[in-house]
């Protein structure tokens, strides 16, 4: 087996150009399709300064609904994919994924707590704090979960897949119970907010959520790419990375906290969307190899692409109703996860 196992190596420029083109066409398609079809030409026009020449209702659909949703899809997809890629590196195991090891569940519990608690306090706190509280609590929940799973499952010999997955099961169950209880004590408005977390949805796209996730994605990309070489060394094992001069403790803490931030932001905006962080890094490695300096940007592009496609499918599959996008990613991802688990049987 040689390089043939990787898809023909494209140069970085070729790949970037190709995937940006693909992303652009997918974005356009995502604006075209929906309960109300907008002609392709109008969709293009909607993105240019001549948008004002379009009929009012088309302008509104493009600018208030479909464009924000498409952008949000791309950002959330990219965040989930790079977080997944980094987590797999950190755990030195290709099965690590925010959804599977319980990080999303921990974040969701944090977010649900924030919604219920702050809804009861909302008369006392200013609105912007209310807005920031949900992502913040999601981050804390995600970070605590990641730290717990990491220190339970990882030893100097690598990560115990069994411990990692079972810890994920336990944390997801705990989080499910917590969210269930919050559902029980919540009023109608809170229930509407909470229901989002069960399956994940991008329907709540707003420009403020786009800005929040764009900022998160930029921070993740900058730090992850700067730490990519050290993360590569960490794949050899902690001791080996230490001998190569990597401050492993600091590296791990930085990456764990940033992954939790990424997942926290996505969960607080779009709920639990699973498996993007699992599938994409695997696809990415087929294209770029496992070197994180290339894998992270490649994963970002592929993640944006996949979640946009999945969301498009979710919107049109059962028109005029809409599937939660988490169902679509789970249909794609769960069989893939089983396949990976099957491959790892011998190593458990």
């Amino acid at each position: 087996m040689t390089l043939a196992m990787r898809i023909k190596q494209l140069s970085a420029m070729q790949f970037t150009a190709l995937s940006l083109c693909l992303l652009f066409f997918t974005a356009t398609a995502s604006i075209v399709v929906g309960p109300m079809t907008i002609p392709v030409f109008d969709s293009f026009q909607g993105l240019t300064p001549w948008a004002s020449e379009l009929p009012q209702h088309i302008q509104m659909v493009i600018h208030q609904i479909r464009l924000p949703r498409t952008l949000l899809c791309m950002l959330i997809g990219a965040i989930l994919a790079v977080s997944g890629a980094v987590m797999q590196g950190l755990f030195r195991n290709p099965l690590a994924e925010p959804g599977i090891i319980g990080v999303s569940a921990g974040a969701a519990l944090g977010a649900a707590l924030a919604i219920v608690l702050f809804a009861q306090l909302s008369f006392a706190v200013p609105a912007f704090m209310n807005l920031a509280a949900v992502p913040l609590f999601a981050f804390i929940g995600g970070a605590l979960t990641t730290l717990l799973v990491y220190y339970m499952g990882t030893s100097q010999y690598g990560t115990s897949v069994t411990v990692m997955l079972l810890a994920g099961v336990a944390i997801s169950a705990l989080s499910g119970a917590g969210i269930g209880y919050l559902n029980f004590i919540a009023d109608d408005q809170m229930l509407r907010d909470l229901s989002l977390w069960s399956m994940g949805s991008l329907a709540g796209a707003s420009w403020s959520s786009i800005i929040l996730s764009a900022v998160a994605l930029i921070i993740l990309l900058v730090v992850f790419i700067r730490r990519a070489s050290s993360l590569n060394a960490l794949l050899l094992g902690e001791a080996e990375a230490g001998h190569l001069g990597v401050d492993t403790q600091k590296l791990k803490t930085t990456l764990i906290l940033l992954c939790a931030m990424g997942v926290g932001v996505t969960v607080s905006i779009a709920g639990m969307i699973g498996f993007i962080g699992l599938i994409i890094p695997h696809l990415g490695r087929l294209i770029s190899g496992p070197d994180h300096r290339h894998l992270i940007p490649v994963s970002a592009l592929l993640g944006a692409l996949l979640l946009t496609l999945a969301d498009m499918f979710a919107r049109v599959a059962v028109t005029p109703a809409e599937l939660p996008v988490g169902i679509v990613t789970a249909i794609l991802g769960a069989p893939f996860f089983l396949y990976l688990l099957f491959q790892q049987r011998g190593k458990m």
């Binding site: 390089l3 196992m5 990787r6 030195r92 195991n93 290709p94 010999y157 690598g158 070489s229 050290s230 590569n232 060394a233 794949l235 050899l236 094992g237 001791a239 080996e240 001998h243 190569l244 001069g245 990597v246 490695r285 190899g289 496992p290 070197d291």
Partner: peptide, 28 residues
Amino acid sequence: PQHLAVLAQQSSLTFAFTVQEVIELGLL
């Protein structure tokens, strides 16, 4: 690290790096 190098008994590397890429990790 430029003065002290250690070869461990075994490594936990499971990802599909090429041999060249593994050796290049030593450039860090």
